[in-house]
Design a protein around this nucleic acid. Structure first.
Lengths: 336, 336
DNA sequence: TTGTAGGCGTTATCAC
DNA sequence: GTGATAACGCCTACAA
């Protein structure tokens, strides 16, 4: 059995209060007392019970990070930075996976998990705006939305400007002389904000350049996975007039697309240029290396942690939108 | 303020005991009572407070997964499976990163975290055998060692047979006609078990084939990262007699090595064959696709969760070693 | 500066 | 089958 505060107090011949003060690094404790208490703590190998402390204080020091899949490189990079940023604030991070399941997402926010287990939630959602609004009212849990969702004024929110990011990527393709520019990642359902925004950026860049929008060049992708990218690219290449460039809504889609292009006997960037979004490390070592729109996951994580911890301390803070910077990174896959 | 058990009891005109029974799905509750209580629970939107429950029961339903870096593909794949397997047992998973820091590793096991916050720990360690033994005695926390550590009989342990895995990889290279076979991943310090075991497998395969072991062909790598793989491969290629094959101790090293080989103007597998370990998805889409030794992360995760939950329920279980299967996967990078 | 006591919300031990 | 009541281990007014 682990030693309790009471054990220490008895052994050291002091009150529990004093022991508690020593443990919590409280101010007014005489040197003599402190030393004696510390000795006994060491002797008994006492550690405060965090569960009891949490029950008393109402805080657990735990945050939840909710992502679709932790093994998607973008999310694992985000998790790395979130865990590190949280540690700097004295928080630890629980990782929950929704597996692209809307119901599970809603459950995680409104359901059994809107309990007192976490002090806050960092949520990288798939859900629609409507659903977010719907579930928003009942919870008082500090929540920060991560990634790429429209700001609806009800939640703290850290994201890049998706429309601009997509626009920048496509404008780069146009600037390098491409004219038949496909897109992979539009969502079959109209519910998702991110694909909509990126589609908007894609189309606006084309329009600005006076290029007609060809709906056959926009391919959906359900999960932003390599497999989806492969499939979509293969379909594009099988069409009558094939594209000379593809804007992929994620680097992972791009990795799959690149493989499909090679399997079709074509060259990158000579026959088809490729650009993605996320700047995962994989794209720096691939052949060719992958041009992309870089997202600063460390920045996103730090801002998110700053917001959620601020809200934990001050629940009535007005929600704020933080726009994270993005940057075009040109590598071999779009070099001319 | 969220409703408590007492609130529900008062409103439903029953005792807290009865409410608790209903919530816990306990057996002996009359239908009438149950219905009335459930109504009030719904009315008040009551959720049991997990912290209070934990204090009382001594269990948190939380597991810790300790890995060097969550954004290393192997670890994020492992985390995915661990989280899913844990969920099937009613547990949630906290992810801690040690960042290749020995002190942090030891701290996480013996230190402040050997508290009552977790019911158990899944630990993918870097530490030496000696250190593991040293820290082992004081803790009663159920711990399962994951990945590739020698079984020392003191902990539950789930891992592949590293010596055989390495042997199989190198034997495959030999069988495909390679004779100057390099290795990337040997550790500069003698402390790590995994590199030692893989080095042993590498050397035994060479010896069996009557190939002399050339120490200049064994390159160390500190972090099993792409950057380390790139660097080590570049060094190998700069040497007088360059290798015709490289066994990389991880797929990530292999991804870096492949890029280095291309940057040197050589072809894979024509000039140099490459094989890794882990079977990360990235290697299925790379060009060339990467031959590897596949580890079954789902199996490892399920076994680990099964062990740790069993030990939580029955602390005195004798530690057991589970050897996870591995399989050679031949892809383009070693095709002849 | 230190001691005492009450309660955080739940489950478990007693009675009935 | 159900109702009161004591812990679980800690923090913190309130006293001293």
């Amino acid at each position: 059995m682990p030693a309790t505060l009471r054990d220490v107090a008895e052994r050291a011949q002091v009150s529990m209060r004093t022991v508690s003060n020593v443990v919590s690094g409280y101010t007014h404790v005489s040197e003599k007392m402190r030393k004696r208490v510390l000795e006994v703590i060491d002797e008994l190998d006492y550690r405060p019970n965090p569960v009891a402390r949490s029950l008393r204080t109402g805080r657990t020091g735990l945050l939840a990070l909710v992502v679709p899949e932790i093994d998607v490189p973008y999310f694992s990079a985000l998790a790395r930075d979130v865990i590190n940023a949280a540690a700097a604030f004295g928080y630890r991070v629980m990782v929950d996976q929704t597996g692209h399941d809307h119901d599970q997402e809603r459950e995680l926010l409104t359901g059994a998990d809107r309990t007192m287990l976490f002090d806050g939630i960092l949520f990288s959602p798939l859900v629609t705006k409507a659903e977010l609004l719907e579930m928003s009212s009942p919870t008082r849990m500090p929540i920060v939305l991560l990634g790429e969702h429209e700001f609806d004024g009800r939640y703290d929110h850290v994201a890049i400007d998706n429309v601009r990011a997509a626009h920048d990527a496509v404008a780069h393709l146009i600037a390098s002389g491409r004219t038949r520019i496909a897109a992979i990642g539009a969502q079959p359902l109209e519910e998702y904000a991110t694909p909509q925004q990126r589609t908007a950026g894609y189309e606006s860049a084309l329009s600005e350049a006076g290029i007609d929008i060809d709906p056959r060049l926009a391919k959906p992708a359900a999960h932003y996975s390599r497999a989806d990218g492969y499939r979509a690219a293969a379909e594009l290449l099988a069409q009558s007039r094939r594209p000379d460039a593809i804007f992929c809504f994620s680097d992972l889609l791009a990795m799959g697309a690149m493989r499909a292009i090679f399997d079709a006997g074509l060259s990158i960037p000579e026959d088809v240029a490729i650009i993605g979004v996320d700047d995962i490390e994989e794209g720096r070592y691939s052949r060719p290396s992958l041009s992309t729109v870089s997202l600063d996951t460390a920045f996103i994580a730090e801002q998110a942690i700053a917001r959620v911890t601020a809200r934990i301390d001050e629940p009535e803070l007005p929600p704020r939108e933080v726009v994270a910077p993005h940057a075009l990174v040109v590598r071999e896959s779009t070099a001319h």
